[in-house]
Design a protein around this nucleic acid. Sequence first.
RNA 1: GCGGAUGUGGCGUAAUGGUAGCCGCGCCAGACUUAGGAUCUGGUGGCGAAAGCCGUGGGGGUUCGAGUCCCCCCAUCCGCACCA
Length: 945
Amino acid sequence: MEYNFREIEKKWQALWKETGLYKTEIDNAKPKFYVLDMFPYPSGAGLHVGHPLGYIASDIYARYKRQKGFNVLHPMGYDAFGLPAEQYAIQTGQHPAITTEKNVNRYREQLDKIGFSFDWDRSFKTCDPDYYKWTQWTFIQLFNSYYCNQAKQARPVSELMEAFAAHGTEGLDVAQTKPMEFTAEEWNNASEKKRQEILMNYRLAYLADTWVNWCPKLGTVLANDEVVNGLSVRGGFPVERKLMRQWVLRVSAYAERLLNGLDTVDWTDSLKEIQRNWIGRSEGAAVWFPLAKEGQLDWKKIYMGSHIEGVECERAFEIFTTRPDTIFGVTFMVLCPEHEMIPSITTPEQKEAVEAYVSWAKNRSERERQAEVKKVSGVFTGAFAINPITEERIPIWVSDYVLSDYGTGAIMAVPAHDSRDFAFARHFDLPIRQVVAPSVDEVSNPDTWEESLDSKTGVCVNSGFIDGMAVKDAGKAVIERIKEMGVGYGTVNFRLRDAIFSRQRYWGEPFPIYYEDGMPYPVPENELPVLLPEVDQFLPTETGEPPLARAKDWTYHGCQREYSTMPGFAGSSAYYLRYMDPKNDKALVSKEADEYWQNVDLYVGGAEHGTGHLIYARFWNKFLFDIGVSCKDEPFRKLINQGMIQGRSNFVYRAVSTNKFVSLNLRKEYETTPIHVDVNIVHNDILDIEAFKNWMPDFKDAEFILEDGQYICGWEVEKMSKSKYNVQNPDDLVEKYGADTLRMYEMFLGPVEMAKPWDTNGIEGVSRFIRKFWKLYFDGEGNFAVSGEEPTKAEWKTLHKTIKKIEEDNERFSFNTAISAFMICTNELTDAKCRKRAVLEPLCVLMSAYAPHITEELWSLLGHEESVLKAAYPVYDEQYMVEDEYLYPVSFNGKMRLKMSFPASYTPKEIEPLVLANPDAQKWLDGKTPKKVIIVPKKIVNIVF
RNA sequence: GCGGAUGUGGCGUAAUGGUAGCCGCGCCAGACUUAGGAUCUGGUGGCGAAAGCCGUGGGGGUUCGAGUCCCCCCAUCCGCACCA
């Protein structure tokens, strides 16, 4: 029987579907294992060979774990809300739901051809109302929660209201937008509207006027991770800063837990590091610099008094610094252009200049600002602040090198020890004072410096009470002092920002929110989901409202609803929980399902989600953990980042202004221009000339200058894209070689984690191997002929070392080396003409995780009725791995000289005299006594003399 | 600038501190063929006729022994980037 992969694959795929082989249920008799892939966004282009790479790896692991006795949850779904479908809808008028449905079906078709073991009964799209109901539900829970810094967890807002009623903000330690102070009386007397405004300061999902990334071209606000170099990730359009009222998630409240949680998960160090950098924890101090008033000599007393009584607090600037040890080197202060105190402190003389600068800075696009980072700009306000430690008057400047959304938007400038302050001081001719030096005698005149001294080592100089102290101690001493004085405290700052959660777009989850008296209220939970309404056009209204404002009669009991929709990450943040219990209409996930499946044991996906999805999902899950929905604090226990598959483009070289094409190695002799050529008409870099002539009308009459009768193409690694003609479609490869070959070839390409160019050149080798493997089970006439004969010792050995190797490789996700082991095994068994059941049956089980179709066919030919998936992973036997004899390379002072064999049972003690007695060894020793003899069992003998 | 990773034949890659280059592609030779982009067999790091010598980006070090561990440098890729 010939290996007919087309028939075999079609037959088994149909049978798997029919019998529901991959259906998974809770089974308390078995340990669980949850294998998850990052679900795809179904784009119109379909899958290319890069997509299935991770899916194949996780599928192999999922199948392997099943055979190891685990109850494996291995689901798949679609991240279906998003910009591309909506952009397409704007252009064509076709409803995004229709486009999405079409793309999803195409994805499913492509995925089915590769033979994955997904439990499709658990599948969903994030745009399904049954699913987004729970996205909306979670949003309401966020809205109704605040973050308690003491308990380090989310708590119901109702508790906060009780606390306010009892004692106002007294003793409050919670995550908040701005510090607020009020008494119980003030709270109790406040109107409903006023109370709602106050609560907005604490909710985990809150509405706030925020400086946002506004993309005019897309007509929406974007999160920081959706903007790269001032351009939108989707579409590459410019982004501006804009002050807008937006929904925001208080992700920053979880910064510490998001950081600490990284120590408990099994992710790669590089990805953990990416997240640590993104969260960006900095230790330092907050210090209040009071505004100096004309004629106010006893400023300190006034300021101190003011602060303690909570009156006129705004007359001091709070700054954040990581270098409190340099406080004696402060020579000016800088505010960000957005700072709210600028108008009130600017002197009349400076008013015009400041206003001009502020308006210029605010209107600059993000891209411009980033492009001109090196350029110094700024303006003096005319006002002065007082350094609380030195009591010096320092000028207050405004500059856009101070960011509004980090720290407090105000800094103390220490030009001698910060490169940015240094550049600013030089540009505006402000004083520079050295307060740190490598040692006490290495103080110099900063006027002669070319750059600032940013090092955090050395001693303090010119620094009052910390003079002579080591920098690392001085910081602590300053913090102590400011605490005593009541002008500051030691604190920690995070780079992680709250996430803007509104999108002024159509194709996303509607907010379950309506407005009454200008304040937002959640829709009752029993009225969820709030369905996405129909609109006549997917565009903003004439008045600039988001598309949902076009929906007819879309109100909540006459109240206006929220018109923006949620961002892409909303739907992808808890999808892993929903797979555990996808049909539940009472809860996001039942207690039973959550407690059985816990969290994801293995998550496979690209590292490009490191600062987006993987942060949001962790945040979202920690919140669900706090409110008792999820039983695990971290959603993804182990994470594997599959490397990106790059394209490998082929080129032909056209001699300039001719229709002649010159083969790769002859092109030096001509002046040529390289032209991309479709990789599908090139085999092993040799051009199919006929196919090329037919490829495009232009090349119909092309002439070729060949080498050795062939046209050899050049190649380059580039991004995989249609315009470069280097896209490989998995369907074509399945059609040509079969799914099993594609699966194994993708794994054989190299380590899963490594980025690599797609190159079809090697697929023939894997295809040959699969056919050779098939032939193991058939005789010369092509009849299935597996015998019951007892294998020889060598055959047993081949089998058991393969079982062991595959198990080790599976466990460490080294699928490329595992395939090498399969090839070696197959070659050995072919050479031995071994066609014995005792060997071939277990081998079939090992291979089934990699090549499920061919093994399923062989397994049934072997007489089994159940799927090979249900077979147990074979146990290897150490006794077959012990050699009779070992070859010992003998080295003298590390140089190899001779090789000797010894029975495997010999101990190093027994080997030593035999080696030394060897005549050749004697020759090398030349009468000398060796200093030592090192014998590594089974490996080496090293004689040192 | 900060952080992370990687560097081995013509190519993809492999080597618990122990004979560097397994497995595959490509290439060379041969067999069977009317034919081969089929199949099978053998060879294939470099220099050398050979013995042998040299070889894992470069330079040091630890070790009896280093692709592997440590230090410095170079190159490439990725992430962050005015984060005080």
